[in-house]
Design a protein around this nucleic acid. Structure first.
Lengths: 99, 99
DNA sequence: TGCATAACTTTGCAGAACAAAGTATTTTGA
DNA sequence: TCAAAATACTTTGTTCTGCAAAGTTATGCA
């Protein structure tokens, strides 16, 4: 059990970050507003959750203009997808502990 | 997605509490020392995680003597098992979001 | 001219998690 | 017999998080 716990990735160890990664695991280039809406987060709150994910290079962003308004979109990197999968595997292992 | 998020139970929303419930979901009457050891927690830390679980009546305890030493053992209540399962179902739903 | 929108950053606070130390009782070992 | 250990906590104090709310910059629209 101890060794499973160490395999849980602290960066993903939060409901909102799990949510972000769940979305980005299957949808490339999701925009800021959509993420905010889906997860019911305030502007600042979403930014503060994206920061550690970006810092770990688990997500990347693209800034573009739609019409003439700026738009930021996010996608999970390959490393992000791998790390997320590893986290979920550890989670699953832990939840099945003892069975 | 929003409605899934609200189904996540805040009481379980922590790696150590997930660990505790994973153990108690399949093992009745696990003693304090074993939980502490398995989860790599300090005395005080385990106590502080058990408290909200007890308060929610998700776990119950039994105090007895083994030899002549006191021993506290814990088990998940029926309500605890149900709530935990609901939490895991919501988690799974969230992680599969978009697929 | 002024309000709106997008995407943040900054600020400040309240609550959580943690380690470490303290407590009570009993037991074991030198 | 006297000190140290074990069980199961509680208390204390600090650090870390997460959050809302407000501020910021750069357009866009009416």
């Amino acid at each position: 059990m101890k060794d499973i716990l160490t395999q849980l990735n602290p960066v993903f160890d939060h409901r909102n970050r799990l949510g972000i990664m769940s979305i980005l695991a299957v949808n490339d280039w999701v925009d800021y507003g959509t993420l905010k809406e889906l997860l019911n987060l305030t502007d600042g709150n979403l930014a503060s959750h994206m920061k550690p994910l970006e810092a770990a290079e688990y997500v990347e962003y693209r800034k573009q203009f739609v019409g003439r308004r700026p738009q930021t979109t996010y996608a999970a990197t390959a490393a992000g997808k791998t790390a997320f999968k590893a986290h979920l595997d550890a989670l699953e292992l832990m939840l099945k502990f003892g069975k």
